[in-house]
């Protein structure tokens, strides 16, 4: 089990979350801010099986738009190892 923490821009959230949920990923959104212009951003926590990490990252890559400002990133992703995963 892995956890993807993805920081994306607010305007991409709808497209990314629909695509991820459509591909049966589970997504938790945390509203956040930050980055260079301290704009609104969305932090997504996505718990995934190890073999689906690549697919998840590809979906995020495909559904984020390219920002007008070349200094801005479309997304920042951290993949963490999850020792234990339980759903109740």
């Amino acid at each position: 089990m892995k956890m993807i923490i993805a920081i994306i821009r607010d305007q991409d959230y709808d497209a990314v979350s629909h695509a991820l949920i459509g591909a049966s990923f589970r997504v938790t959104r945390i509203a956040s801010s930050g980055g260079f212009l301290r704009r609104g951003s969305s932090t997504l926590m996505i718990g995934v099986a190890e073999e689906k990490v690549d697919e998840g990252i590809q979906i995020i890559r495909d559904h984020t738009t390219i920002p007008d400002d070349p200094g801005l990133k479309r997304a920042t992703l951290f993949v963490l190892d999850v020792k234990d995963f339980t759903q109740i």
Binding site: K2, V53, I57, R61, T64, K73, R74, A75, T76, L77, F78, V79, L80, D81
Partner: peptide
């Protein structure tokens, strides 16, 4: 936290 993988695009 240790990161297994980092990407930005």
């Amino acid at each position: 936290l240790q990161i297994e993988r980092y990407e930005e695009f």
